[in-house]
Design a protein around this nucleic acid. Sequence first.
DNA 1: TAAAATTTTGTGTACGTACACATAAAAATT
DNA 2: AATTTTTATGTGTACGTACACAAAATTTTA
Lengths: 366, 366
Amino acid sequence: MYVHIKIALRLTQNEKYFIFDLPMKKKYVLKDIAKLAGVSIGTVDRVIHNRGRVSAESEKRVKAAIKELHYVPNPVAQSLKNNKVHQIRILLPDPSIDPYWVPCEHGIHEIKDEFKAFDLDIELSYFDPVKVNSFKEAGEAILDQKPDSLLFVPLFEKESVLLMEKLKNSNTLTSTFNSPSNSGVHQFIGQNLFLSGRVAAKLACDHLPSEANVGILHLDESFNNALHMQEKEKGFRAYFEENCPTSKLYTHTWDSSRSKYHLEKLQNDSLVYDILFVTNSKIHPVAMAVHELGLKTKLIGYDLLKENVVCLKEGRIDFLIHQAPKTQASLSLKNVIEHLLFKKPLPETVLLPIEIINSENVDSYL
Amino acid sequence: MYVHIKIALRLTQNEKYFIFDLPMKKKYVLKDIAKLAGVSIGTVDRVIHNRGRVSAESEKRVKAAIKELHYVPNPVAQSLKNNKVHQIRILLPDPSIDPYWVPCEHGIHEIKDEFKAFDLDIELSYFDPVKVNSFKEAGEAILDQKPDSLLFVPLFEKESVLLMEKLKNSNTLTSTFNSPSNSGVHQFIGQNLFLSGRVAAKLACDHLPSEANVGILHLDESFNNALHMQEKEKGFRAYFEENCPTSKLYTHTWDSSRSKYHLEKLQNDSLVYDILFVTNSKIHPVAMAVHELGLKTKLIGYDLLKENVVCLKEGRIDFLIHQAPKTQASLSLKNVIEHLLFKKPLPETVLLPIEIINSENVDSYL
DNA sequence: TAAAATTTTGTGTACGTACACATAAAAATT
DNA sequence: AATTTTTATGTGTACGTACACAAAATTTTA
């Protein structure tokens, strides 16, 4: 195939250009298909989008031509044509109530910035992770706007199902992250929580004497999806049953701010833990309490909150598992945008790796 | 601002459409700037690309209009206009000689596929990681083609500098990964190797008695950038000096296939290692040898080669550090493509996180 | 067999940007 | 004041796709 090439050979700015042709690889376009099939561009277009009004004969020839030339539509041209402003709404637990969500906000703003040159209207709203109604109301407010896409964290399973129910007949694209749900969304981005528990257990086991006392702590349950934490516990226990059956495992549920009180009580009952596994990001109060009580308990928890990172670097926490909230949120938004703009396929499930963090590699994650 | 909206209200396919206007957010375009500044599109364009031939007065007003409306050019339209076929060449160590590079190849093919609808001509060629001349020749062959972009792994520092020297006056975009170099490329993607050594050391320390014997192994040196491995050793030793000064560290260099022989000899000299740190992906022969000799040495190494993963899962290797070769290669290619197509900025350095892998989280990385 | 209805096909324009070329305005020369 | 030269500005077309509408070809009905 030959392509039009322009070469500037002019010496002064008013001389004319030379234009000639050079052989060069070239992507095939609609026009090429039309020529090969002996029809017009319009007919090719109708076949591609099966909009009907095409004779069987033409359709056959166009399809053959597409196949022969391996034609793929140019997504840049498509998205240029389709010049609507895509409405994207994001519903996030309020980061000022639970700082775990702060990185999500940052990730979203990064992606917003990356695509600032495109026709996107991205709006972020928050709900209180402790109040179901807050989620419901914020969700409905968004539905009223009939957005092209909705991203949210399905902390509340029942209400998420209800939300999706109302969205059934629209063609709003839905993407979720952090918490899995059966609400029938188009996409979920997160981690395998069971496996995550196993990873924690493996790290714990490596450090333990036989017949160790092992504690599993669910802190501030009201802030979290309880299912979320239970799944981690299941994985944790499964690993221990398989690999350290002599260890004794106990589960506790308490308020993170009362960690010292609870640990002291356990100490008085002469139950001293060799290791404590905290199933969410609230490990730092525990680390402080352990330190103040002079215990030698090893600690494993979740997430790179500022306070957690400090404890990790000072050796008060042994390992953190990184759930990559920022990656989850930004990937979710990016996937949706690239689907709307460039028709990239939207993967139904993206399971991010379970990242092990210690005092030495933590900086490489920040 | 008001936008043209078409609504299909026709009952039969031959009725006409209703067309009316609805208020809606809309991105500002060249035309809007031109109108506001009271000039033509051409003048605005000349100002934006400072191509001159514009009066000071017009330039001032256009710039003010751009600022006022926060105008950002539409990169989709730009890339549609610029319909050249971008030539991208990739120079990779031959994966059939060192399997470490296999994932790079996969990553590259994934990105190639992701962008198959665009006008890109991406070609992959290989060099023998043991032969400097192979790199030189393959490099020069690529230079002759004057590609728009060149990706390569600068295994050989001196030759990489030479290659870049020859590229100096062209505007070929260069991106490298895996090995850092001072050849003046536009982009490097990789890990902080010193830190990587420290991470290994931290994992090692956690498992050690005081006064432990610690071995550092550089295997099959000819295959690798020696600097690469030395940097890891430095980090490893630095951590031990700070945190486990009582341990005794020894460095060995041998051929991975002769691991059993060397370990046996050390055993006869009654030097038994508590831990061995292998500075590259060649740890699995060591793991097999340790197993066969019945040693209880802990092992830490690099990379998720199939053989390494098997050893990890069977408990013969304790930790692997993932250098994410696939991510490195695919990110390098993706960055270059998005720069060429959409003018996204190309970050000079991307340091990927140092990922700790054990038997439980390894699957989440595959 | 002509007219009407229906199906099929082709054409033109828009999306937003870039740039060659044409034209207009201003400045410098005669 | 008439001209050339220089500088400034505007216009038209292309990129590849999508789609409304016009036009042509075919089928149905009278």
